[in-house]
Write a protein that binds this DNA or RNA. Structure first.
Lengths: 160, 160
DNA sequence: GGAATATGGTTTAAGATTCAACTGTTTTCG
DNA sequence: CGAAAACAGTTGAATCTTAAACCATATTCC
């Protein structure tokens, strides 16, 4: 491959192994997400992200979370979460309630119906995750994967 | 095989470690992709997927690929690729050409301008990938990650 | 040969996501 | 206190993605 161009003099390119790992990672990522998403969608009508939202809410005290916290926790933009919650609300799985303490804020609250859908979807989803990921790995590999992913998680190294 | 329907009696739930690994994976995934995408977009106006398309084309003989092959190689649906190529074509980075041998088919061909943009974007992108991923891992961890991802890559285990 | 079917690819409309602008509240600080 | 800045969240338009229908060519199989 041709060496660098304009400006990019000192680039440290990926060596063969890094390149191969990187591409595997991208492919595995996109395939796993797509399959799980499709499966979940087919089985329960919620997307993977929506499922994540329901899970997060179900684990929160009072089955409720402030929008901002929820957005951070499922890693989506505020705007996207807002739309997403609107849809979940329309579906009857979540409702909004204004927040007393901070009157700018809103709670997103899991409804009974939302909890029900979550419960019904959970088993099948976990089974799928297992098939697609954990059953293919040894215990040791799971450990290694965890160690690596925890290193890769933090958004920007700026964490003081 | 465990009976797998609405009842979900025999589900093997994730244990604490698996759960933690799984969530790390999802978070790391979405953060990395989002950051790289945003960076690439800001620096060169192409998304991560578009960049992937340009890379694939640049490596193909004659810098051209049939739509179907390209779609498989970058892991997107035919439909999405078609739209994507339309946009890249509009931007002047790719052009289509009908395929002689199979007259249903089309080639997607990297243009000079597309190659130029790719070259200009590549260095910065690699640097970012390095910062975001490889520089955080030991050589051994990179190896482990590769081994794991290669196992997770294949779409469906159903080989027959 | 030719009807049925499969394949390659595009298109259209519907749904999701992003971006920037906006409302209203809270915090900061001179 | 009060103005400026920051924060929580929503909204609407533009963009992107997905799903399904569709066209045209290839292939299969009787």
């Amino acid at each position: 491959m041709a060496p660098m161009t304009a400006g990019e003099e000192g680039v440290r390119w990926l060596d063969a192994e890094e390149q191969s790992v990187w591409r595997s990672l991208l492919r595995a990522q996109s395939r796993i997400e797509e399959e799980l998403d499709r499966d979940l969608q087919a089985r329960s009508g919620v997307s993977l992200v929506e499922f994540g939202i329901l899970v997060a809410l179900s684990e929160a005290p009072g089955m409720r979370m402030r929008m901002r916290v929820l957005a951070d926790s499922v890693i989506v933009s505020k705007s996207r979460l807002s739309h997403q919650i609107t849809r979940l609300e329309r579906a009857g799985y979540v409702r909004r309630e204004p927040c007393e303490e901070d009157r700018r804020g809103f709670w997103a609250i899991l409804t009974d119906q939302g909890l029900k859908v979550l419960r019904e979807a959970a088993g099948g989803h976990v089974t799928r995750v297992r098939e697609r990921v954990f059953d293919r790995l040894t215990r040791e590999q799971v450990r290694q994967l965890g160690a690596v992913m925890r290193l890769l998680e933090p958004g920007d190294g700026a964490g003081g």
